[in-house]
Design a protein around this nucleic acid. Structure first.
Lengths: 200, 200
DNA sequence: TTTATATACGACACTGTGTTGATTATTTAT
DNA sequence: ATAAATAATCAACACAGTGTCGTATATAAA
């Protein structure tokens, strides 16, 4: 029956190999150009074996993405957040943002493949949604009525969510040269003080 | 006799039909799921005819994207721009931004298809690059040395470019309810005053 | 009209897909 | 160590989509 770890080791090995192959190939030729045979050749498994684990390549990508999103949600919960005003006044970056950058750095190859120009835009949309709902959660434009806002809350949220994702993408493209703390610092300053204020 | 366009009318009709079909299908099932037969069925042309105009569906998308990018560059040139400081002080949106929103609205179906979640991420990257190089051009983080900046100029640019694209996407998802001027106003406030300042 | 050429049509070889049944290899549990 | 369970392999299948022909037809431009 099942072992204490839950999964047959053959399954773990195969899925790991498939995932690694997917990352490689996404960086090389982009998701759309990948065939199942590409994946199974690279992973050194039989083509039919792929279908024992995933319905098609979209299913594979989807499961991979879901795991990442879930990981990130865990980070948001673990670091018991908030204290937004403190961090707004001080020039210190928020620990949650640091933790997220650390997570991204630890899986930078995967994140670059999945967020980059050759990726499937699906994940970008899912991640942006996750960021947006978190911004709502911490009350970013929530407890204020629309009248108190200089712009519609909806666009405020979209602006910040997209901006943060853009900075993450730029960081990944640069090979993650800055530390997670430095990146969190950069994001904090840009959002708290405003991009144009960041010039002088 | 009317050769002002230089193109046989059959060619124009066919390419228009192909392009319309592409937009329809991208909204329906996403670029990746589209087959040539899907396009030619929808466009009511023979499948072979497609290959008289485009090498494959990527070529079709690429040409379409290029035209849009070129159009936008023309707008950036036409409106002889700048006067950045004026608009920074006053609460008036910049005419270039208004013109760009007007262009997007006039082709909202196409833009939504090409910028949306089911699109190919390629265009998003190209447009972001165009925005970035324009930000460099207007001296957004250019004539200042890195020491004068609160954050690396590179990330400042990425932040603003991605943020603006995110707002455009949100606007398209909402069906372009706000006017181009209103949207330009929103973007100006968010970038000049900073997203967090936009709360109170 | 005449001429040029864009499009339609059917056929071709080719690649990739998703599935199946039988066989082999490996892991887990006893 | 051994038996039972099951994951992986392999070959084969029908099917869909691709890109490219040659030839015939339709339509635009002169």
């Amino acid at each position: 029956m099942q072992t204490s770890t839950g999964l047959d080791r053959r399954i773990v090995r195969t899925r790991d190999a498939i995932r690694e192959a997917l990352i490689d190939l996404m960086e090389e030729k982009g998701f759309e150009a990948i065939s199942i045979k590409d994946i199974t050749d690279r992973a050194n498994i039989n083509r039919g074996t792929f279908y024992l684990h995933y319905h098609d390549k979209f299913d594979l990508l989807d499961q991979t993405e879901t795991e990442i999103i879930e990981d990130m949600k865990q980070i948001l919960i673990r670091e018991d957040s908030l204290g937004l005003e403190e961090y707004m006044i001080s020039d210190r970056p928020h620990p949650i943002i640091i933790a997220l950058f650390e997570y991204i750095q630890a899986r930078s190859r995967m994140m670059h493949a999945i967020l980059g120009l050759k990726a499937n835009p699906n994940f970008q949309g899912r991640l942006k949604k996750a960021i947006e709902s978190n911004l709502y959660f911490i009350g970013f434009a929530h407890h204020k009525s629309e009248n108190d806002l200089l712009v519609p809350g909806e666009y405020l949220i979209s602006y910040v969510a997209a901006a943060h994702m853009g900075v993450v993408q730029a960081w990944l493209n640069n090979g993650c040269r800055e530390t997670p703390r430095e990146m969190a610092q950069i994001l904090s300053r840009l959002s708290f003080q405003g991009p144009f204020k960041a010039i002088r």
